[in-house]
């Protein structure tokens, strides 16, 4: 069997398949469906310094080959995570990465620092790209200067592997990627959701409580692939690719585009067992094409 191991900075993954933040809970919710020891890693739900209730219902609208959500970073805050959730996840048989979000640079740095003290959490994914909260999140992620300033502060507060999750809602994502690389990010992950909107014509109303939401699912995959390809050419650090991955073939496409690892998001809602099927499918692809390591196909487009 081909070697599936990849590294994202100092973070070593047994295979390149992780689950995306906000789509897999804390892993615990999916233990009936997935043997977590077969996964590369889990990126757990976005965590903020203080508890957040998120946005009002309705928070979700299905669209053509995709879905919009405006959950708005509902979570119980970093204290609750450290006291109640960390003890539950620290011995899971896979790498657990915490997605960190915030409204101010100080919040980001403080939350990252707190997570950094947890021995069994080897990495954070810094969310500077949530489209669903008015203050912070995407506000930092849409300018090079904003992104750089958050990463600079977090880099000082957090010594372990720092992955920065980028917004696709920008003019030039490669420029943002270069800016966070320059401030010491170990990797970038992309794409977060694309900002969208749904309208109910019969009722003449916006479907989502705050009007807009983030689009995910197969509908965004071509956009994500293009951006992963573009960013992987622009930076020297590893790229984690996500956006509409539903199958092993989709995952292989991201690896070929230049991603070192991938995250599975919306697909977990449709098939809660999909993530490990993707792992097995990548193995089969490598065997079928005669590769001895998954690393041989990273960025290996032939044209």
């Amino acid at each position: 069997m081909a070697d599936l191991k990849v590294s994202i900075g100092a973070l070593e993954l047994r295979n390149p398949v992780m689950t995306a933040s906000g789509t897999f809970g804390y892993g615990l919710e999916f233990q009936d469906f997935v043997d977590l020891s077969e996964l590369g890693g889990i990126v757990v739900k976005g965590t903020t310094l203080r508890p957040r209730e998120g946005n009002p219902y309705p928070r979700m609208a299905e669209t053509a080959s995709g879905m919009l959500n405006c959950v708005g970073l509902q979570n119980k805050g970093v204290d609750y995570f450290c006291e109640h959730i960390y003890p539950e996840v620290k011995d899971l048989p896979t790498q657990v990465v915490v997605n960190v979000s915030g409204s101010t640079i100080e919040d980001y740095a403080e939350t990252a620092h707190r997570i950094g003290e947890l021995e069994r959490i080897p990495a954070i994914e810094l969310n500077i790209s949530c489209p669903n909260v008015r203050q912070g999140g995407m506000a930092f992620g849409v300018t090079s200067q904003g992104a750089a300033s958050v990463v600079k502060a977090v880099r000082r507060a957090y010594p372990k592997t720092l992955i920065v999750k980028l917004s696709p809602n920008v003019t030039d994502i490669a420029e943002i990627a270069r800016a966070v690389e320059a401030e010491g990010a170990d990797a970038v992950s992309l794409i977060n959701t694309l900002m969208g909107m749904a309208i109910d014509a019969e009722r003449r109303r916006k479907v989502l409580s705050i009007g807009t939401g983030g689009l995910s699912g197969p509908a965004v995959k071509p956009v994500a692939l293009r951006m992963v390809h573009q960013v992987s050419k622009a930076v020297g650090i590893p790229v984690v690719g996500l956006g509409g991955i539903m199958s092993a073939t989709d995952a292989v496409e991201f690896l070929l585009a230049g991603a070192t690892a991938v995250e599975i998001g919306t697909a977990n809602f449709i098939d809660p067992g999909v993530s490990t099927k993707v792992v097995r499918g990548i193995s089969e692809y490598l065997a079928r094409h005669g590769f001895s390591s998954v690393r041989e196909i990273i960025g290996a487009l032939e044209n």
Binding site: G25, Y57, R59, M60, V71, P272
Partner: peptide
């Protein structure tokens, strides 16, 4: 309520 995952992960169906 309208939901996506059904298992407590997406937090879309809240009341």
């Amino acid at each position: 309520n309208r939901m996506a995952c059904g298992v407590g992960a997406c937090l879309c169906c809240v009341t």
